[in-house]
Simulated assay, not measured.
Amino acid sequence: MEQQPHFFFALRLPEETKLVLKKHIERMKETIPFRRWVHHQDLHITLVFLGAVPPEKLAALLRHVKEVLLDTKAFSLKINALGFFGHEDSPRVFWADTEESPPLQAIRGKVFTTCERAGFQLEKRPFRPHITLARKWKGEDHFQKEELGVWTKLQPEPLSFQANEVVLYQTHLTKTPKYEAIAVFPLHN
């Protein structure tokens, strides 16, 4: 039986930012053992995860999201550190962190509220913006928090980029890259 596609809203990273992160990932892979590293074309900042959605409900939601983002401005964002989710000695998610950003929080709030009003049951954990780089620690030894310091060696200054698109992605688990842009909402300069 084929699995239903899942959807999520995300902030798309510009191509040049993805390429810089790809280079950093290749270097980190040499010394930091995770089971699965994210394909650079799949790098993004998740705003809202929807899961499986019927086509008619998705079409209505896209109209509402387009409306709430209509006058939203593009903004600058900086990637400044590494972090992880899960056990300290064997993390399940390894990610790049962004500096605090009120515009990012505002956009996430608009999309989240719109999805809730459309009847979606959403995760209630606090929003922690991040870019997933890898999943599932596979090292023979425990993960060492000192590994997070590699970021400042690879990227001495925060990596700045212009956030100018919110995207609805569909997940294709059997493809690489596995996220397909279904709808794009440009943020205005």
Rank of each mutant, 00 (worst) to 15 (best):
Q3E: 11
Q3A: 15
Q4W: 06
R12M: 09
P14F: 03
E16R: 13
T17G: 01
M28H: 01
K29Y: 02
I32N: 01
P33E: 06
F34A: 03
R36W: 02
W37R: 05
H39R: 08
L43E: 00
H44Q: 09
I45R: 01
L47N: 02
F49C: 05
P55F: 10
P55M: 10
R63V: 09
V65Q: 02
V65C: 06
K66E: 11
E67Y: 13
L69A: 07
L70V: 07
F75S: 06
L77D: 03
I79P: 00
G86F: 02
G86E: 04
E88M: 08
D89S: 15
D89G: 14
R92D: 05
F94S: 02
L104C: 06
Q105T: 07
R108S: 08
G109C: 13
G109F: 11
T113E: 14
T113C: 07
C115M: 10
G119K: 10
K124C: 09
P126H: 15
R128N: 13
K136V: 02
G139T: 03
E140P: 03
D141I: 08
E147M: 11
G149H: 07
Q155H: 08
L159G: 03
S160A: 15
E165M: 12
Y169M: 04
Q170H: 12
H172K: 12
L173R: 14
T174P: 02
T176Q: 14
T176C: 09
P177L: 13
Y179A: 06
A181H: 10
A181S: 14
A183C: 09
A183G: 03
A183Q: 11
F185H: 01
H188F: 13
